[in-house]
């Protein structure tokens, strides 16, 4: 017999005995519920009416409130979030970053927004789409990507290997710049997961990553340091 069958066999054997219901510390058994004990059922339901959106941190209903929340959360995470009125403003914001940090070369990928950004910057660009040299990407001053969603609840973004130029682009260069559209904002995490599932089923990109602030560590005396292994800076430009 293969180890697979051995392990599955042991699991099936073990599961012949029912476990008590979770979270009641032995007060109610599974038999109570399956026998239709109304008191147990009522208590069970009372403890968790609603869905994850009703328990996770509150998000306002209007888009304005959601952008306000996103901006506050991003600031708490030490990410730079700029809500811009037009493509001209987007271009100006990019040029300001380029000049302030003296960028010489950036890495990016093919995409309507990322192409616009690279053209606006007027710098040499390493494109990842048809393969790239890792050492060259490591030398780039910034990685410019698009994203799948902005999540108001967390102040973070969701990227995938398909939407953001592969696995390394959003994490290898020292500055990650996300270019997003306003319509990409979603309220909360359940909405983000539902959106991704709907967008990609059944052919998911091999990597989906929720990026919530620039790379960080607290491993030395629990003191926050940005840029542990990934980007020291995360800029989200949304127009």
């Amino acid at each position: 017999m293969s180890e697979r069958e051995n392990i599955l066999g042991r699991i099936r054997e073990a599961l012949k005995v029912n476990a008590p219901l979770p979270g009641w510390h032995g007060e109610r058994s599974a038999e109570h519920l399956s026998a239709g004990d109304p008191a147990a059922n009522a208590r069970n339901l009372a403890a968790r009416s609603g869905t994850a959106s009703d328990w996770l941190p509150l998000v306002g209903a209007s888009v304005a409130e959601q952008f306000e929340l996103f901006a506050k959360n991003a600031a708490d995470l030490k990410a730079d979030f700029q809500l811009l009125a037009s493509r001209d403003e987007l271009k100006a914001a990019l040029l300001k970053l380029r000049d302030a940090e003296k960028w010489r070369r950036v890495a990016s990928h093919d995409g309507e927004l990322s192409n616009f950004a690279c053209k606006a910057l007027g710098l040499p660009v390493l494109l990842t789409d048809r393969g790239y040299d890792v050492q060259e990407m490591e030398q780039c001053d910034a990685g410019i990507t698009e994203c799948d969603a902005l999540i108001a609840q967390t102040g973070g973004v969701a990227v995938t290997s398909r939407s953001a130029g592969g696995r390394a682009l959003s994490v290898l260069p020292p500055h990650h710049v996300v270019i997003a559209r306003r319509e990409q904002l979603v309220a909360d995490l359940p909405a983000a997961f539902a959106f991704l599932q709907q967008k990609y089923t059944p052919d998911f990109p091999s990597m989906i990553s929720f990026i919530t602030g620039p790379s960080r560590t607290g491993d030395i005396e629990r003191i926050l340091v940005l840029g542990a292994h990934g980007p020291k800076k995360l800029t989200i430009l949304c127009y």
Partner: peptide, 23 residues
């Protein structure tokens, strides 16, 4: 860790797929 979300939460569903540039 007392964080709202950790910085990277990443789901992998395979090795590099056709059309992908790295991994």
């Amino acid at each position: 860790a007392g964080q709202p979300m950790t910085c990277y939460n990443t789901m992998y569903s395979g090795p590099r797929q056709p059309g992908e540039c790295d991994g």
